[in-house]
């Protein structure tokens, strides 16, 4: 039986707890806190480690398996979060780092510190508020697809039979022949993503290795997979922003 991947969460605030609750089905969770006394909700369920940013606290073993480890930087202080990210990146080049940031200013600093993905809290919340008000239906559908138990799924399919398109451009392909799925975008090997009707998608033919982002019901996606290629679970270390 394959071991679960590990998520190392730095911080014990409400965001950290929420992240732990959300990813616990995929990851084994370990918390890193600065104070022994820090209470963590459901602390009985999670491992708690103590660390001190100003000290040489690295337990190298915990971070060595970069393939199967993901680190969440969720410290309350923005400066400490940046410092933590820099400390980890400077020691572990391939470690996948995800951080939350209060505002845009912190986003750019965290990105510079080598964080793979930064989630801006205020901006994301504002976008969702705006969506709920202006596009309530779209917001509900997208929310369902992304976060809730909806029958509709998003999938990323790697093209393996590009020859079947006979050099056709993605924008010109009649995707309706693949009943049940809606093709949203194409991600090329160079990791650039294009909307299905973009100018580039009108000029660049599909190649093996390109990824197609589709929305559809599970059965239809499986059928689509059979014809086009295979579902791809992207390795974080391949992914950069």
């Amino acid at each position: 039986m394959q071991n679960k991947k590990r998520a190392l969460i730095f911080g014990s605030n409400k965001y950290a707890i929420e992240i732990a609750n959300s990813v616990q089905s995929i990851y084994d969770i370990e918390f890193f806190v600065t104070d022994e006394k820090e209470e963590i909700e459901f602390s009985g369920r999670y491992v708690k480690n103590i660390f001190d940013l100003s000290d040489d606290w690295y337990n190298v073993e915990k971070f060595e398996d970069t393939e199967n480890t993901i680190v969440f930087c969720v410290l309350d202080e923005e400066a400490e979060n940046v410092f933590l990210a820099i400390s980890l990146r400077s020691n572990f080049k391939d470690l996948v780092l995800v951080a939350i940031a209060a505002n845009k200013e912190s986003v750019s600093k965290l990105k510079m510190a080598g964080v793979n993905k930064v989630i801006p809290i205020e901006q994301t919340t504002a976008e969702i508020i705006s969506d709920i008000i202006h596009n309530p239906i779209a917001s509900k559908v997208l929310h369902g697809i992304l976060y809730e138990k909806s029958d509709l799924k998003l999938a990323q399919i790697e093209v393996e039979n590009a020859e079947m398109f006979d050099g056709e451009f993605p924008a010109d392909i009649d995707w309706s022949r693949y009943q049940g799925v809606v093709v949203l975008s194409i991600m090329h090997k160079d990791l650039t993503t294009e909307f299905i009707y973009s100018s580039k998608a009108k000029r660049t033919p599909l190649k093996n290795g390109d990824m197609i982002i589709v929305v559809g019901y599970e059965a239809d996606i499986a059928e689509f997979e059979k014809q086009i290629g295979r579902r791809k679970y992207v390795n974080w270390s391949d992914w950069s922003w």
Binding site: K117, L154, L184, S185, M187, T193, I213
Partner: peptide
């Protein structure tokens, strides 16, 4: 699903 997430 990082790629799909980014697309949405």
């Amino acid at each position: 699903q990082p790629v799909a997430f980014e697309a949405i």
